[in-house]
């Protein structure tokens, strides 16, 4: 089964790092978006199994994006992983309370990202 993952981050370096990490999972296809608005457009124009999103982004930040996604019944169950530089407890709690499923702080470790994604997609 092929899984489609949408990466939303304004940093091309970060996106490429995540693409590199996620493509190590068999049968995973990755799409990229550079901010919240671009990400939401891509989400509504395709079918995705998981979203990996940054918090600090131009145009629309990751927290706003999460609340919009969760406000749409069509996407209420899609897993969202926040990947951010914000390491504070409050930031984490806020993201999770808005509907994010996991919270990973930068700098990322690919094995950690993979284990979180595998768990959310139930890949054994």
């Amino acid at each position: 089964m092929a899984y489609r993952i949408l990466i939303i981050d304004d940093s091309p370096t970060m996106r490429q790092l995540l693409v590199f990490a996620l493509k190590r999972l068999n049968g995973v296809e990755v799409a990229e978006a550079s901010d919240g608005v671009d990400g939401y457009k891509k989400l509504t124009s395709g079918k995705f199994d998981l979203i990996v999103a940054d918090i600090n982004m131009p145009v629309m930040d990751g927290l706003k994006l999460v609340s919009i996604i969760r406000g749409n019944p069509a996407y209420k169950d899609i897993p969202i992983v926040m990947v951010t530089t914000e390491g504070g407890k409050e930031d984490r709690e806020k993201a999770l309370s808005l509907g994010a499923n996991a919270y990973i702080t930068k700098p990322i470790q690919a094995p950690h990202v993979l284990s979180v994604v595998k768990e959310l997609l139930k890949i054994t």
């Binding site: 940093s11 091309p12 370096t13 790092l17 530089t85 930068k106 700098p107 990322i108």
Partner: peptide, 14 residues
């Protein structure tokens, strides 16, 4: 910009 991204995302510089 890329140097900054590397320092933030890979090294964890604030």
């Amino acid at each position: 910009q890329i140097i900054q991204e590397i320092i933030i995302n890979l090294i964890g510089g604030e």
